[in-house]
């Protein structure tokens, strides 16, 4: 299997505090890779480093034969890594349609186009509508996202992540705060949009993790505790001690 993301000795310090230490991991094309760990283990920081929100203090990140260490977020996004946020990060005063369209405009590399009228662009309109249908958001197409329920906003967040048609999708706790039924719907949606793509997911819901993941990486205290198949992780003593112990 092809290695698409390679992280080597990645570390991040904040004001002298070491948040991530010597993280080395590989992500293979097409796999569904879950990242788990207790709160404060550094999962979100790992995401933030890979997707370009912060610059690493040490270490390198390689994606599709490019050294993307220290690259700015927008450059990484255009290269093919797309992420969702734990705290919903969508355009509040725009409609669902306009939100999705923003991603489509970027995908078609029209962000700086100043000579055509956006509303008249048929291709963009078609793609945006198609995306809306894929994520089942057609019915709220012209509603302001700030007026949507939390569950539907999460859908929009997911849609934005997928609309760029990325190679690698990174989801940061996509089911956080969702009811059981909504979680199930979200998982179905995630399966739908990640078909043919690679997915790295931070999750706390162990059912989701162990049912979906091809491989799991366990983080603890900024370090990798273990990496392996769900069975291997389930039987790993260190992991059990640090994390799953109580259950």
């Amino acid at each position: 299997m092809e290695k698409i993301l390679y992280v080597e000795n990645l570390s991040k310090d904040f004001s002298g505090l070491s948040v991530l230490s010597e993280i080395t991991m590989e992500i293979y094309q097409g796999e569904l890779h879950a990242v788990i760990g207790p709160n404060g283990a550094g999962k979100s920081t790992l995401f933030n480093l890979i997707t370009g929100m912060f610059k690493p203090s040490r270490g390198t990140i390689r994606f599709l034969d490019n050294d993307i260490t220290g690259w700015p977020a927008h450059k990484i996004a255009r290269l093919g890594i797309s992420r969702s946020f734990q705290l919903i990060n969508i355009f509040p005063n725009m409609t669902v349609y306009e939100n999705i369209r923003n991603a489509i405009v970027s995908k078609y590399n029209l962000r700086f186009n100043w000579i055509s009228i956006l509303d008249r662009h048929k291709e963009i309109a078609r793609e945006s509508s198609r995306m809306l249908e894929l994520i089942s958001l057609e019915d709220v197409r012209d509603k302001l996202v700030s007026e949507l329920s939390y569950g539907r906003q999460r859908q929009v967040e997911l849609a934005l992540t997928a609309a760029l048609n990325p190679v690698l999708i990174m989801l940061d706790e996509p089911t956080a705060g969702l009811s059981v039924s909504l979680t199930r719907n979200t998982i179905e949606l995630i399966k739908k949009i990640t078909k043919g793509k690679t997915l790295v997911m931070v999750e706390h819901d162990m059912d989701v993790v162990f049912n979906l993941a091809d491989r799991i990486t366990v983080l603890n205290d900024g370090r990798i505790l273990a990496t392996g198949s769900p069975d291997e992780i389930r039987q790993n003593k260190d992991v059990k001690n640090a994390y799953l112990g109580r259950k």
């Binding site: 997707t51 927008h74 946020f85 990060n89 969508i90 355009f91 923003n102 991603a103 962000r111 934005l160």
Partner: peptide, 13 residues
């Protein structure tokens, strides 16, 4: 509207 979201969608803020 949301410069962080925009940059993660590939917009050069």
């Amino acid at each position: 509207e949301k410069d962080i979201r925009a940059s993660f969608l590939g917009y050069n803020v």
